[in-house]
């Protein structure tokens, strides 16, 4: 059963299962975090510090809890009935579960990109400005500027600038995913969560997204869930390996892939299971 939620004491945090190597003052901090779908526990005592403006990759076999943890950062899991948690997640030192935190405001500060690109059935333009529209932004100049800035940031501007008002559904798979990234960053969030953003894309489109991710980390703290260990090793600064709901190892990516400490990590990255 979940422990009742206690507003954490950070200094008591025992780094039980993970090796922590904080590079910079941490940005997202996960403390003794348990998560439950109904009675089924999906995450066990996760402790993790995700630094600012770095790419942190979550790897591990299916069902290991990496997406579940990712979806907790913007509390998307709360759309599912009967979920509960124990422990805490803080951003900038503020608990995201604090009763004073507005879930809407939290999600506006955290962009999210999903496994399958999910553009709205509207024009490209309206897709990108949706996060602004829902905050009541109506000024044409601001919207126009946002569209151009966001689409340039995802290197889609030149490809689509002449058909901004056509339906988004005419784009290719890779373009659609870049459009979704543009939409996710349109309201200038601080954190970008990516849940297997390339798993439905071909290698060329994947390469473009990967380049983009490396580019975007100048402005955003990026957490990416990926099934591809090559992808994790190519683009991430830090890698966390999850297995059966536990964080097995968390370290700098090159260390994880060259000299992992845990046997399970080594078995996984060398392809012995998973």
């Amino acid at each position: 059963m979940p422990n009742s939620f206690s507003p954490s004491d950070p200094h008591q945090a025992t780094s039980s299962s993970a090796t922590l190597v904080p590079l910079e003052p941490s940005f997202i901090e996960v403390k003794e975090f348990d998560f439950f779908y109904g009675k089924k526990q999906a995450l066990f005592d996760i402790n993790l510090e995700i630094p600012d403006r770095q790419v942190t990759a979550f790897i591990g076999p299916s069902g290991c809890g990496k997406s579940t943890l990712l979806r907790n950062f913007n509390r998307m899991n709360e759309l599912i009935p009967n979920v509960s948690h124990a422990g805490d997640i803080t951003i900038h030192g503020t608990s995201i579960f604090d009763p004073s935190v507005e879930i809407i405001a939290l999600r506006r500060r955290i962009g999210m990109v999903f496994q399958k690109s999910n553009p709205f059935p509207m024009s490209l333009y309206e897709n990108v400005v949706y996060p602004l529209r829902i905050t009541g932004q109506r000024q044409r100049a601001v919207l126009d500027e946002t569209v151009e800035r966001s689409l340039k940031a995802v290197v889609l501007w030149d490809e689509v600038k002449d058909r901004l008002h056509e339906s988004a559904l005419g784009l290719s798979g890779g373009q659609l995913q870049r459009l979704c990234i543009a939409r996710a960053i349109a309201s200038q969030p601080e954190i970008l969560l990516m849940d297997e953003p390339c798993s439905a894309l071909d290698p060329i489109a994947t390469a473009k997204i990967e380049e983009l991710i490396v580019e975007l980390k100048k402005d955003f703290t990026i957490v990416i869930v990926t099934h591809s260990m090559h992808q994790a090793s190519r683009i991430s600064d830090l890698t966390a390996f999850f297995y059966l709901g536990k964080l097995i190892e968390f370290d700098q990516t090159n260390k994880i892939f060259t000299a992992p400490i845990q046997k399970q990590t080594e078995d996984y990255i060398t392809g012995r299971f998973g």
Binding site: N74, M76, L79, I104, A105, L106, R107, R108, G111, M112, F114, K116, N118, P119, F120, P121, Y130, P131, R133, I134, T135, C180, R183, A184, S187
Partner: peptide, 25 residues
């Protein structure tokens, strides 16, 4: 498709905004 709802909620839309702008149309 629930992916529309995910996208909208993920961008910080309220339930009403999600229903009105995305789901109902």
């Amino acid at each position: 498709s629930s992916s529309y709802r995910d996208a909208s909620y993920g961008l910080g839309a309220t339930a009403f905004q999600t229903i009105w702008h995305i789901v109902l149309p």
